[in-house]
Write a protein that binds this DNA or RNA. Sequence first.
DNA 1: AAGAAAAAGTGATACAAATCACAAAATGAT
DNA 2: ATCATTTTGTGATTTGTATCACTTTTTCTT
Lengths: 225, 225
Amino acid sequence: MKNECIDCPCIVKYFRTLNKCQAEELGNNHVVVRFKKGYPIIKQGTFSTNVLFLRKGLVKIHITGPYREQIVRLIKRPSYLGLPTTIGDKINQYSITALLDCEVCFIDLNIFNRMLEQNKDFSNYILLELCRSEVESFRHCANRTQKQLRGNLADVLIDFSENIFESNKFLLPLSQSEIGNLVDTTRESVCRVLSEFMSDGIIRMEGKKIEILNTRSLKMISQNG
Amino acid sequence: MKNECIDCPCIVKYFRTLNKCQAEELGNNHVVVRFKKGYPIIKQGTFSTNVLFLRKGLVKIHITGPYREQIVRLIKRPSYLGLPTTIGDKINQYSITALLDCEVCFIDLNIFNRMLEQNKDFSNYILLELCRSEVESFRHCANRTQKQLRGNLADVLIDFSENIFESNKFLLPLSQSEIGNLVDTTRESVCRVLSEFMSDGIIRMEGKKIEILNTRSLKMISQNG
DNA sequence: AAGAAAAAGTGATACAAATCACAAAATGAT
DNA sequence: ATCATTTTGTGATTTGTATCACTTTTTCTT
């Protein structure tokens, strides 16, 4: 499963284009690991000494709450994974699981820290990343708790089409109970609302393939709960 | 309202004790502002070029959601305020309001950035702060959406007595509708549950003064929803 | 390709909390 | 001290969603 790679295109290439730091610093101090769809990348409660960078695929960040599993957010490439916990106390506060086949760079924490220290642009960039992601979490959370089911589901569908797949037609890589975990509801309720959306002609479903037929309606539903 | 202060004890003193950076760097590049209970310190959507440090008092972080006001968290001194937004895109993503009389240091963002650049320990400290607060947000959010009202209210009371006032007897600086905004429910429901807690002998109330009579019960309620 | 396991669909029922509607009490302003 | 305003307390009713129970369909395994 593991395979070393000296000249892999992940963050090295990413930084080269963004001009964020000397890509050379990484050298072969990182490793690319492939994860098949559905496999865990990080497990809540475990110890971590690597910074992860998602160079291919899509993952979910989820935490085991008091009663059910809760999906906090989805992250698509290219992006760092779990920065706050790796930089923080090293104990992973959440799990990360592959929703599609993924390729993840594991960067040694020492190297990462050296980069942080030596490169102002880079550390600035990381700081900004953290800020953005916290604000993002706030918004996400506020929306979810204030809207009701139809609104939240509409949001998920819109988000998928706009940000995750950038098309109105996509293969939803989540089961209905996973969608439930994302919008804080049960599998059954997700099913019911999706059926409603279908019979209202807002979406069309074929297995896990979803096509959004009426984005305007979805946005309306998103707005008035 | 405003008054300059060259030798104020806020962050200067704070850093001196924590040995996080040369307190001198701040010099008189910061200003202390006092806010009376109930007054807004930062308003969502406004532009900010200062880093804030709460040296006295208690504040709420709240965002105007699609339907109601939502309190994201309470912050007591000593603590930075709104770091992610000030460091980020400078537009405040949430409001901050004084719950008790407060004193806040306004530090010029340029100075703050210079400190970040020049002092490794300091920037490390800020990085850690950000990480901690993000993870904290996750947990808070997950708990709230998974438990039901009684559990959430119990949590708020426990949090107040343990972290905010460090005593079982406190003057609750929130109205019932504010508590509602904190646990995502209505004023009426908060009232009802508090009454229940009273008649169960778990708490005692005199106006806004709340005394916790049975912490064990509260923890039980917190645990099993 | 066949059988097992997981996911999806859907009705009936239960229930926590929202909403509405007032009255009582507390707090602030003049 | 008095009046106005904001908070609190509580009942009656509605409602969105959870829960339970079962069937059908899809997906995975060997």
